[in-house]
Design a protein around this nucleic acid. Structure first.
Lengths: 396, 396
DNA sequence: CTGAAAGCGCTAACAC
DNA sequence: GTGTTAGCGCTTTCAG
């Protein structure tokens, strides 16, 4: 059963071209992720019966109109809570009963064509695989779903071309609005959509030269608080591992770091700043090594994000430098699972779920479900989370 | 700027009720996640200009028909690659040029109403926040998106009632098909949808008494391999922390454990099995404690999932028992970030991205974009990942 | 090869 | 109160 044959096992059905092709796909899969060798074969069992691909016709307003002997529009009215009051109670009840009995479900896409409201919103994120986005999505969903909105989520991979294509994809599907998480710095496609009157809210980043409402975290406050914390522990020489400068967070946090250092009178040379190309452990490690080799002395590293911090700690460990005893390291975001990793990282918690919920509420306002005037800028509070990766400065 | 006022700061705009309400929401947010105290106020800056909520009319086929002096149907034909060949080349070119110039984008909603194909699929997952699902989603997207499909993702939270409502939500939106990740064991709503002719594929679990194609991982093989690995290390007394028995994975893995233990001649008492209510570290810890207190001797714990294993290791550490020196612990799934946690967990890697891609391909086949005969069962291979949490049995 | 016309399922003016 | 009518934007016969 689990021998290295590389041949799909079938119970019924004939070997058609499509089967061959399908199986070829599986082989490709196995090959591509070549972590997996041929120890197991992919097993497939065939369904003998040809799938009856006949979509059972849904019951429509017309059906229930015929059933109850009234006009479609009456049915429509009786079924819409907003217009039901204009209908004789008995008739309305009869109609509702029939609808129930026939299992009527409104066809939102037909309704959408008529009303120009699909009750669907688009959500653009860089990559769902990045752990900070799922909570944001749940936050968005938590306010939109109860109101009957569904969301189409797309991953931009932070690629300009892909992103602009996806904006079009969403518009083609007639979304009522778009929540854009981590838009690019200058973002013509989303700006154009907004100009065309499509409600748009951005999260984590502001689109320059636009009046698109945005919600961001108090990056500045987070950095300041973290720096104050380090200073209180006696640290004076503090290095920074900055994030990618083409991403909002990377840029904002670096700026905040420089400013706050100056304000605290700790302004150092730029040799105590290393900039990562990506928010990745590996980059954090490299940057930490660069900092160590620069010769610039420091007793703490403030990192622009948790993953960079994790990498930095790894680099220190490899050189036999203890964190936090010799060098304190801090992160940003408070991503999930952080408390399982030793030493537990001191970091800045950003609101994830709430950020999503807030953006969603803004979008609703834009959609006219409430305010007709909407805040341009919303800054969400952050919170310092002190754990084990920071300690009193050794010579402080 | 960052004082504890609790009052939103505004630049322009008047304090209307809606503003007050919106701000009340923010306060609620802050309150609810009361991890965040009043150290920072939420700042909002108001956009003075009332948003012009006039959706610019999109250009339609009619527009470009008028522009080029031909009939809408001709335009429709000229713009569809499949029917373009039936059009005089010059006319077709003129039409395409006009479409380009006017920035024409087909209205998929309208097309969908006509053709009954929305080029949208529904994807149901328990919870996007669970790290194993995002890669699955990317896998699905990787095959569907290039073909022009968008997906509506919904979180069921594994609640029956919610799940069945969401199936309806998806159907109302006219999705062409549904990929259901971790459906419930007996799942009337999705079964009904499938019976009604809606293409459905399930991932991770089979819906009983149905002909719904499903793709699952080789749970059995994974457990067997892990057990063989432990046996090779000299372990004979092996405990199991099982997952929730109402979830496919929990149930399958427990059954596989029992069977494989028997096959290896290691069959133990049921006192060496503890069952978690949820796949959560906390539960893993509790179960490990139960096992230790049971008095049943063991030198290894095979856990139904990584998170349980992480919890178990935590429990051991608290009691001063070293993993892996004294007791080996193993996981399942190989979730992201596992290699950052010490000791690095020995586990079974399941295909995540590929599983999604495979399910998507099956759905495509069901949609008629290929085969008309589709495998009922597809079992994906798994791979043993040996890291640091397993070691030779101390007295072995 | 192209135009005319019907209609997908629903909503919303406007009559009566 | 309820029926009539006219589309939303597109596809797809059916004529010519």
């Amino acid at each position: 059963m689990r021998e290295c044959t590389g041949v799909a096992q079938m119970r019924t059905g004939s070997i058609t071209q499509s089967i061959a092709r399908t199986f070829a796909n599986f082989l490709t899969v196995v090959k591509k992720h070549n972590a997996i060798d041929c120890k197991y074969s992919v097993r497939t069992v065939w369904n003998g019966k040809r799938c009856a691909r006949m979509l059972k016709k849904r019951t429509t307003l017309k059906d229930i109109a015929r059933e109850t002997g009234v006009h479609v529009s009456t049915v429509s009215r009786a079924l819409d809570p907003a217009t039901r009051k204009a209908i004789t109670p008995e008739v309305a009840e009869k109609i509702q009963a029939a609808a129930e009995r026939l299992g009527y479900r409104p066809n939102r896409i037909a309704a959408g064509l008529r009303t120009n409201r699909t009750m669907t919103v688009g959500v653009m994120i860089p990559d769902i695989t990045n752990v900070i986005f799922p909570p944001i999505l749940r936050g968005i969903e938590s306010v939109l779903e109860p109101l009957g909105y569904a969301s189409i989520i797309v991953n931009t991979d932070s690629e300009k071309e892909r992103e602009s294509r996806l904006v079009d994809v969403l518009r083609d599907r007639g979304v009522d609005g778009i929540i854009h998480t981590a838009a690019l710095r200058s973002d013509p496609s989303i700006a154009r959509a907004a100009e065309d009157g499509l409600p748009v809210v951005t999260l984590n980043r502001r689109v320059e030269n636009s009046r698109i409402p945005y919600v961001i975290n108090d990056e500045d406050g987070g950095i300041r608080d973290m720096l104050a914390h380090l200073r209180d522990l006696g640290h004076r020489r503090i290095a920074h591992i900055a994030g990618p400068q083409d991403l909002s967070t990377g840029q904002l946090r670096l700026a905040a770091f420089r400013e706050a250092m100056a304000d605290l009178g700790l302004g150092g040379s730029d040799r105590s700043v290393a900039t990562a190309m990506r928010f990745h452990e590996h980059q954090g490690r490299q940057c930490a090594e660069m900092l160590l080799e620069s010769g610039e002395p420091f007793t703490a590293i403030l990192c622009a994000n948790d993953r960079l911090a994790l990498g930095a700690i790894e680099a220190l460990r490899e050189r036999g430098i203890d964190c936090p005893r010799e060098i304190s390291v801090t992160g940003f975001n408070d991503m999930p699972f952080l408390d399982l990793i030793r030493p537990k990282l001191t970091t800045v918690r950003i609101q994830q779920h709430s950020a999503g919920a807030t953006a969603a509420r803004l979008l609703l306002d834009l959609l006219g479900n409430g305010a007709d005037d909407v805040p341009l800028e919303t800054i969400l509070p952050v919170e310092l989370v002190i754990r084990e990766s920071t300690a009193r400065c050794p010579n402080g």
